[in-house]
Simulated assay, not measured.
Amino acid sequence: MTNPDDAGLSDAALAILRPVTLAKRARVVAGLSQGTFADTYGIPIGTLRDWEQRRSEPDATAVAYLTAITNDPVAVAIAYRKSAA
C-alpha cells in the first residue's frame, strides 16, 4: 500500500531507503563538507566517514557531541575553538 505523501515511491523502493545518520545530519545542518566538518569539530575524517557510511557507530559521548552540533553548530564550533586554544 502506497502513501500519497511518499512522492510516488513503491513499497519496495521505500523499504530500501535508510534514514540519514546523526553524523551526516549534523554535517548537513552545519553546511560543511566532510573535511571541513572534521577540522571544525576535531573529529578524525576517517571516523566521520565511517559513521556516515554506517561502518561504525558513534559512542554515547560522540552522540552527545553530534547532537549538540546539530542543535547549534556555530556555538559548538566557537566552544571547540576556545577549548583547543
Results as ranks from 00 to 15, higher is better:
Phe37Ile: 00
Gly35Ala: 04
Asp6Thr: 13
Lys82Tyr: 14
Gly8Gln: 10
Pro19Asn: 05
Ala84Ile: 14
Ala75Asn: 12
Ser83Phe: 04
Arg27Gly: 00
Val76Tyr: 12
Pro4Trp: 11
Arg18Met: 07
Val20Ala: 03
Arg55Thr: 06
Pro19Arg: 14
Arg25Gly: 04
Asp5Arg: 14
Gly31Pro: 01
Thr67Trp: 09
Ile43Pro: 02
Asp11Tyr: 13
Ala60Trp: 02
Asp6Glu: 13
Leu32Ser: 03
Tyr65Ala: 11
Asp11Trp: 12
Gly31Ile: 02
Gly31Leu: 01
Arg81Met: 13
Thr40Gln: 01
Ala79Trp: 15
Gly35Ser: 04
Val74Leu: 06
Pro4Gly: 04
Pro44His: 09
Leu48Met: 07
Pro58Arg: 08
Asp39Ala: 06
Thr70Asn: 10
Asn3Phe: 09
Ile45Leu: 02
Arg81Cys: 08
Ala68His: 14
Pro73Ala: 02
Ile69Thr: 12
Asp11Asn: 12
Asp11Glu: 14
Arg18Trp: 10
Ala77Pro: 05
Asp11Pro: 09
Ser10Glu: 08
Ser33Arg: 00
Ala77Val: 05
Val76Gln: 05
Arg49Trp: 05
Leu66Met: 05
Tyr80Ser: 07
Glu52Gly: 00
Tyr80Arg: 15
Trp51Glu: 01
Asp5Thr: 08
Tyr80Phe: 13
Leu17Lys: 11
Ala26Met: 07
Ser33Glu: 01
Ala68Asn: 06
Val74Ile: 15
Pro19Met: 04
Thr36Arg: 03
Val29Gly: 01
Met1Gly: 11
Arg25Pro: 06
Leu9Ala: 07
Thr67Tyr: 12
Asp6Ser: 09
Arg27Ser: 00
Arg49Cys: 08
Ile43His: 00
Thr47Val: 15
Val63Arg: 03
Leu32Asn: 00
Asp72Ser: 15
Lys24Met: 08
Asp59His: 15
Lys24Tyr: 11
Phe37Asn: 00
Gly42Lys: 11
Leu22Met: 14
Ala64Asp: 11
Ala30Val: 03
Ala85Trp: 12
Leu17Asn: 06
Thr21Trp: 03
Thr61Met: 06
Ala23Lys: 07
Thr70Trp: 07
Ala79Met: 06
Thr61Arg: 10
Arg81Gly: 08
Thr47Cys: 04
Leu66His: 05
Ser56Asp: 14
Ala68Cys: 08
Ser10Lys: 14
Asp5Gln: 08
Gly8Leu: 15
Gly46Thr: 06
Asp50His: 07
Phe37Cys: 02
Ala79Pro: 08
Leu17Ile: 04
Ser56Asn: 06
Thr21Asn: 08
Pro73Val: 01
Ala30Gly: 04
Ile16Trp: 11
Ser33Asn: 01
Arg49Met: 10
Leu9Cys: 03
Thr2Met: 13
Ile43Cys: 06
Pro73Tyr: 03
Ile45Arg: 00
Ser56Cys: 07
Leu9Tyr: 04
Val74Ser: 05
Gln34Trp: 00
Ala62Val: 13
Ala23Ile: 07
Lys82Leu: 13
Ser33Ala: 02
Thr70Lys: 14
Ile78Val: 15
Gly31Thr: 00
Thr21Ile: 05
Thr47Gly: 07
Arg81His: 07
Ala13Lys: 07
Asn3Lys: 12
Tyr65Ser: 08
Leu22Asp: 03
